[in-house]
Amino acid sequence: MSAGQDPPPRRQIKDSRQLRALAHPLRLALLQYLMAVGPRTASECAAEVGSSASNISWHLRNLARYGLVEAADATDQRERPWRAAQVGLDFGEMSADPATMAEQDALIAAGIAEEDQLTRRFLARRDALDADWLAAARLDNYVLRATPQEARDLAEKIDALLRPYLATVREDPPEEAVLAYTGVRLFPRLDAAGRTG
């Protein structure tokens, strides 16, 4: 991606088969890893997500069946690298349909677990990080007062701010740039009785 050029759009995931494929925690972690770092072999992926290379190969083939990953150009004939077929995912609007809701809930749970793991890994190892990164790291929480349209507008603005920094498509990042995780959640805050305030 050259300067001034928009990154590719996030891939819309609305098909129930794709939702089910991604709801598996290992597959979601695998896809998010490939979207973050670019092409990797099954062995490299296995080391990152804590599984065997043969198990990861099976999951990669499963993701490929739904067009979520694809084979990448190999540098030698022994290893077969894979890459994410997109730079981000868009799961669309939350559904009220019970079947779709169950699929979305499973995917959301897997995503929350992955985000929790990344956060815990950061917290456990922050003593070894550069002081500049410790000063830049944020775990902020906000409670906003907004209409649904304002929330949609805000989500679009946040997306527009983050997209130029997408790891696998950013060209010529500064030499000291490293992968940085950012997660955004935006939903109505419900009290214990399930009411909005």
Rank of each mutant, 00 (worst) to 15 (best):
M1G: 12
S2K: 14
S2H: 14
S2V: 08
A3M: 12
G4W: 04
G4V: 05
G4K: 03
Q5H: 12
P7D: 02
P7I: 04
P7V: 06
R10Y: 13
R10K: 09
R10C: 12
K14S: 14
S16N: 08
R17E: 11
R20E: 13
L22P: 00
P25H: 02
R27Y: 07
A29E: 11
L31A: 04
Q32M: 12
G38L: 04
A42I: 00
S43R: 11
S43H: 07
A47N: 11
G50D: 03
S51T: 08
S52I: 04
S57P: 00
S57T: 13
W58V: 13
H59S: 10
N62K: 15
N62G: 10
L63M: 05
L63G: 01
A64W: 01
R65Q: 10
Y66C: 05
G67I: 01
L68F: 04
V69P: 00
A71C: 06
A72Y: 02
A72N: 01
D73L: 09
D73F: 02
A74W: 03
D76G: 06
R78C: 04
E79M: 06
E79A: 13
P81S: 01
P81W: 01
W82G: 00
W82A: 00
R83A: 08
G88K: 05
L89D: 02
L89H: 01
G92P: 01
E93H: 10
M94F: 09
P98Y: 06
A99E: 15
T100R: 15
T100E: 13
A102R: 15
A106V: 04
A106C: 10
L107F: 06
A109W: 04
A109E: 12
A109C: 06
A113Y: 04
E115W: 08
E115Q: 12
E115K: 06
E115F: 13
D116T: 15
R120F: 06
F122V: 04
L123W: 06
R125V: 05
R126W: 00
L129S: 05
L129M: 11
L129V: 02
D130V: 04
A136S: 09
D140P: 00
N141A: 14
Y142L: 14
V143N: 08
L144W: 11
L144A: 09
L144S: 03
R145W: 09
T147H: 09
Q149H: 09
L154R: 07
I158W: 09
D159I: 02
D159F: 07
A160E: 05
L161C: 08
A167H: 03
T168R: 05
T168D: 05
R170K: 10
E171H: 09
E171A: 14
E171V: 06
P173I: 03
P173H: 06
P174R: 10
E175I: 06
E176C: 06
E176R: 15
L179C: 08
Y181M: 09
V184N: 04
V184E: 03
V184P: 00
R185V: 14
R185W: 12
L186C: 05
R189M: 15
R189Q: 15
R189P: 01
L190K: 07
D191H: 04
A193C: 07
A193K: 13
A193Q: 15
R195A: 13
R195N: 15
R195M: 10
